[in-house]
Structure formats: C-alpha cells, structure tokens
Nucleic acid binder design. Structure first.
Lengths: 172, 172
DNA sequence: AGAATATTGCAAACTGTTTGCAATGACATC
DNA sequence: GATGTCATTGCAAACAGTTTGCAATATTCT
C-alpha cells in the first residue's frame, strides 16, 4: 500500500463541523470502566494507548498509534491486540476511508456517530456532523430490511487546498 | 482477515433496486475501446477476465475473479495487474464493503454510480438505486469544498434472512 | 513477415496482521 | 502484604494479500 503525502494534522479546525475538542479524561475513565465491567485488566500498555488516542483529532492507523506511544516501548503486536479489544468493547470504532488502511477513532462517550470529509490533496480528515441518510434507511426499512447501519465518507478538495492551488497558479 | 460465511449469489434479485441484468457485450466492447484508446493491448487474459466479470452480479474480490477464470489458467498476478489497469481506465471501480476485502465491479457504460446494501447474515450484496446525499454535498460545496465524491454502504439484515430467522424461532 | 513494445508468468520480496508460547503483571482473596 | 489465578505481554515465527524484477512471449503496426 502506497504511503500518501502527509496526514497533516495542522489546521484541523473543522470548518465542516462544530468543534469537539473533547477533554481527554472522560474518554479514558469511560474506557477504564468498560474494561473493568468486562472483567479485563487495566494495564500500563492499555493506559498508554488510551492516553495517546485522546491526542489524535482524526482517525489514526495502528501504525500511527504505535509511533505515538513509542516512548512507552510497547510491542506493535500489543497495539494490534489492544485495538481489537477496544473495538470489541466499543471503546473505539473502525473508520474506513477507502484507501485500504485500517483506522480507528476513540468513540465519544455519548455514542454519537459521524462521518468524515477527506481532502484528496492534503489528506486532512474532518468530522462532519449529522447524516441525512435517514430517508434512505427508512425506505429500506419499509421494504423489510432491518438492523440498518451504514458507512459514509466524503472525498474532495478542502477550501485550504483550493485556495493554495489558486495562489500557486497566480505565482507560477 | 476472517473468511465470512458465504458470498451467496442465489436469490440476488435486487429487491431494493431496479433490475439491471445488463447484456455482457456492451461492457466488453466498451472495455476493448477504452483499452485501445489508451494504447494498450487486447490480450487473451484480459478478455477472459472481462468476460468473467460480466458473469458477476455483485462486487467480486481479486481472488473470486481469479477462481472464476481458473480454467483459462492465468496467473494470479495477472489478475491483480489487470484489475489495476482496468481501475485506472475506469473500466471497473473499487467497491469497499468495510470488511477489509478489496472488491471491484464492472462499471456500467453510462458511468452511473450506485451504493450497496450488505446483509450481515447471508452476506448478500445488492445494488441500491440513487443516493440522496446531494444535500450534504451541496452543503460542503457552499463551504468551499470542491471536487466532491463519496462512498456509502448500508448494512443490516435483509428481508429473506429476517423471514428465515422468524421461521427458525417458531420451529425451535 | 519483422520491429517495437506492451504483457505475462514465475519467483521472490514486502507489508500488514495474526498466532503460539513462555514469561510477566494485575487483581481478588486470604 | 503475600499468594494464587488468569489475563496480558513480548518475541519469534507464520500468514495472507499484494507488489516487483526480469526474462520470455504475445500483440499491434508497418
């Protein structure tokens, strides 16, 4: 799988969505409770991973998370296993951006659900609020389909990149 | 990556979408023209692959396509390379169902675009007509986002499976 | 038919992910 | 606070899917 330019986290100020720079603590506490309730242990590696995850403001890959906790010196295998566990417990959810890379995202305590906009130039990923797909789901429901869920991602060029390429064109 | 039950092609009669049991020929002819226009060659392996693709009525994986042409005795590598070429030329498009398996689908000559419903019980995949996401896209466009596209898949339990599980419950 | 070049097959490399197993660490109980 | 139990970790190795290098082959054009 090809490596793309750069995940660029600068300027991740979500123009397409209301801000949610959530406080790390609730997420971590929630996770701890969930682990405990499931009879699982709260270990140093897991805490380090949870802490690191709160520092991401966009979906991250296993590899990225691994690099983010490198100081704590865990094995990559542990990251894989922890993410699998967290995912099963609903602490994180898988985000599929269609480039073949598996990414995750810390789920917000209220269980709300959102989609993303991915800039195909700078690779920035922004959360979007709401999804007006209910109509489509309702239609399927009327046809007898049940337990519906969906997965949606938008792609395109973000306003920043559009502006930059204009500037480039002028000075070229 | 775990293997799921069975791709089940039986009963793929698209209740959620108008039928389109397209005639194979136009697709193959279109592909031949596109290849030629791109200065590429029309070879026996490519023809075999194109022919095999028309027999699928749901997105297929590289592996599945490989098995479907096994008689023609091509190398799996050729299937990978051909699909990459076809995808670049717009002869097929990648379909992402979120289970980590890369799938493709022969694009219809009119370039129309659709999404899918995936039954999480029998794994059946059905095309859906239309997508009412234009509103969301328009909103992004007003915010300065451009060259928008999206990717959407629905998941759930199809009417058949729902019916079967009811029957199961009664006789159990 | 012949030249130019795209395409194929085969083997081997790679990447991302998973598994087996022994050593370690967390938590509850005494 | 020591002890027993069981989840968790690290390491090495296996694996699956996909990609690459290269020589042999096939296609297309003249």
């Amino acid at each position: 799988m090809k490596k793309n330019p750069k995940p660029s986290s600068k300027r991740n100020e979500n123009r397409a969505c209301a801000e949610h720079h959530h406080d790390p603590k609730p997420s971590i506490e929630r996770a701890a409770r969930i682990l405990k309730d499931a009879g699982l242990k709260s270990t140093k590696p897991r805490s380090a991973l949870l802490e690191a995850m709160t520092r991401f403001h966009a979906p991250f890959s296993t590899e990225e998370l691994f690099r983010a906790v490198k100081a704590s010196d865990l094995d990559l295998v542990t990251v894989y296993r922890s993410l699998a566990t967290f995912s099963d417990l609903g602490i994180v959810s898988r985000v599929d951006l269609g480039d073949g890379v598996v990414r995750y995202e810390l789920r917000s305590p209220d269980g709300s659900h959102h989609h993303h906009f991915v800039c195909q130039e700078c690779q920035k990923v922004e959360p979007l609020d709401s999804c007006e797909i209910k109509a489509q789901e309702n239609r399927l429901r009327e046809l007898g389909y049940s337990q519906l869920s969906h997965r949606l991602e938008f792609f395109g060029i973000c306003p920043d990149c559009r502006e930059h390429s204009r500037a480039d064109a002028r000075t070229r």
